[in-house]
Simulated assay, not measured.
Amino acid sequence: MPRIVRFHQTGGPEVLKLEEVAVAPPGPGEVRIAVKAIGLNRAEAMFRSGMYLEQPSFPSRIGYECSGTVEAVGDGVTEFAVGDKVSTIPAFSIGKNGVYGEVATVPAAAVARYPASLSWEEGTSIWMQYLTVYGAVIDIAKLAKGDTLLIPAASSSVGIAAIQIANLIGATPVALTRTSGKREELLKHGAKHVIATEEQDLVAEVMKLTDQKGARVVFDPVGGPTVAKLTAAMAAGGILFQYGALSTEPTPLPLMDVLGKTLTIRGYLLFEFTTHPEKLKPAKEFVVKGLESGALKPLVAKTFPLDQIVESHRYLESNQQIGKVVVTV
């Protein structure tokens, strides 16, 4: 029987267990993948902890992203064949279809091919990060050449993806990080400017960089008190995407900035995008074109073997990484 990562209670990384589990054949419209690599995401740590939008039903599977080869297809699946090299798009239940393990079964609509030049580790580091950015920043905000994009938690895989996409279209990516320890690495990976928010005046620095205009788009996974500084650093008519809640502190509504500058603060979920085929198709084309040209390049921070799934989650939550944490199978 294949080894699958499951957990039987919420908690820290130690609740993750690697267990032998019987796996049913793929049902209608499903694809079973022989997993080669697994990309880790903050959403999975939150799900494991019982702090995610979806609540686990025990024993629960876990995981959104994997790469591998098609092992079997269910009735009605015609776009994939056994042996195809594929990866998964987060567009399914993380508990029911979780991909951590030696095999994963997911809806065919959540499976995609990617350029053959990419490794397994890079292949599992594509869709969550690039589609999360595309759906908000490109599809909704229409980020364009000359715009300034503020990127809190810029060293995350999604943060690096936001830097790359901003550069691709000619916008200015401004990376926000708590201390200057990651400054040189963020500049190396494409940030035009880096602001260490615990060491520098965030608002003053942004205004200086934008000739006192402020940033039109903010892409924030953190929330908490810093939102007030972000809105103060925004341009009139700007939009702030709140796509995560990493801060455990309350998030204020900076009412005077919102009113005075007619700002939009918008909650954003990747799934409002990945579950709509008409939106997903152009996004996939954008990402694949970027990957093929080299303008988009998944950055793998560190890899762990499947046997070290607990250690991989500890590292994920340590905030040491720049880029994607990957588990190899």
Score class of each variant (00 low, 15 high):
Pro25Leu: 09
Pro25Gln: 12
Pro25Cys: 07
Pro26His: 12
Gly29Phe: 11
Val31Cys: 07
Ile33Lys: 04
Lys36Cys: 06
Gly39Met: 04
Leu40Asp: 07
Leu40Val: 07
Ala45Gln: 04
Ala45Phe: 04
Ala45Leu: 08
Met46Leu: 15
Met46Cys: 00
Met46Gln: 14
Met46Ser: 13
Phe47Asn: 08
Arg48Asn: 03
Ser49Ala: 15
Gly50Pro: 00
Met51Leu: 15
Tyr52Cys: 01
Leu53His: 09
Glu54Arg: 04
Glu54Pro: 10
Ser57Gln: 10
Ser57Met: 01
Pro59Val: 11
Ser60Ala: 15
Ser60Tyr: 03
Ile62Thr: 14
Cys66Ala: 14
Cys66Asn: 11
Ser67Phe: 05
Ser67Arg: 06
Gly68Ser: 06
Thr69Tyr: 11
Val70Asn: 11
Val70Pro: 13
Val70Lys: 10
Val73Cys: 12
Gly74Asn: 08
Asp75Ser: 08
Gly76Ala: 01
Gly76Tyr: 03
Val77Gly: 13
Val77Thr: 13
Thr78Gln: 08
Thr78Asn: 13
Glu79Gln: 15
Phe80Leu: 09
Ala81Ile: 05
Val82Trp: 02
Val82Glu: 12
Val82Leu: 01
Asp84Val: 00
Val86Asp: 09
Ser87Asp: 06
Thr88Ala: 02
Ile89Trp: 05
Phe92Lys: 12
Phe92Tyr: 15
Ser93Arg: 07
Ile94Ser: 01
Ile94Phe: 01
Ile94Asn: 01
Gly95Ser: 14
Gly95Cys: 10
Lys96Phe: 00
Lys96Arg: 15
Asn97Tyr: 14
Gly98Lys: 12
Val99Gly: 04
Tyr100Gly: 01
Tyr100Leu: 03
Tyr100Thr: 03
Tyr100Ala: 03
Gly101Ile: 10
Val103Ser: 06
Val103Asn: 04
Ala104Tyr: 06
